[in-house]
Amino acid sequence: MTDILNPTEEVLAEAPPPTRGGGAVRYVLTKIGGALLSFAMVIVLGFLLFRALPGDPVQTMTRGRPATPEMMARLEHKLGLDLPLWQQFWKYLGGLLHGDMGDSYFYNVPVLQKIGERLWPTVLLVGVSTVIAVALGLWLGTRSGWRRGSRFDRVSTGVALTLWSTPTFWLGMLLMAATTGLFPTAGIVYTDTPDDFFSQALDIAHHMVLPTITLVAVTYAQYQLVMRSSLIEEAGADYLTTARAKGLRDDVVRRRHAVPNALLPTVTLVFLHLGMVIAGAISVETVFSWPGLGLLTYDALRVGDLPLLQGTFVVLAGAVIFMNTLADFLYRVLDPRVRAS
């Protein structure tokens, strides 16, 4: 205690600042652990939903079709429904570990194979739309939030709210009706398109126009509104006064100081809302017969194909969990405060 009288550093007064490094590995492991736990919950939920709820799967699957008691019993046996619940769960779990989610009742192929075929169209559609929607939403949100109450703000917020209030499938149907003949309204590619890469790509792009516009229109509003309000939250922050006092131009203050901070809550929400984008994708794919996972989900529920529905549920939920784990890592890169803790 001899150095007390000569306090060169403020060791006396304040706790030492937190040390950096070393936390990164722990952070990543925690997040991965959390994601695995979530995925385990999805798997359990996927089982409980389709097996343990008070509905009768066999009746659901044969709804609207004539079925004799023998057929129903055969189906029950095929699905393993005549076993006790816990044995069913072991079978389901064991199958999952081997990459087997059972066979599609309707397509008569393994569920995972069917999902694999339909995965890429959805990734393409959702990926392109999300990139466009995020860019558009952030740009509009930044402009309207920084000049709150301006005509630009009022108009763009009004448009965003209106589009957000519109059901996705209806907007798709309207677009379809309004642009009759200009764009293809079903499928991903015409069967008579030449096989070379360029023609194929062009045709797919042509098919993608309407679904993409629909999906962007119903999702960008979220991003715009979140960005707008987090920028408004930041608008009163003291560090912006500091930046202005330094003599920075208004747009530099916005770009260099306000936006990076306002982006943090926005990034979180962009990823949390991915589930909503999936919902949009199901509607859009249904309306435009886009052969992705959304349409597959719709077909599965239309014909009561429970194994297929179970498969799409697990895969879609797993994908969203995966994306959110990525978001956690991205967030850590963006916010030094998360890095420290």
Binding site: D238, Y239, T242, A243, A245, K246, G247, H257, N261, D335
Partner: peptide
Amino acid sequence: VRWTSAAIVFQGAMHALNPVR
């Protein structure tokens, strides 16, 4: 003129510094 002729030490340095830079 700002910061070259006169500069300010703000109260509450916690909030007067940009947290992400």
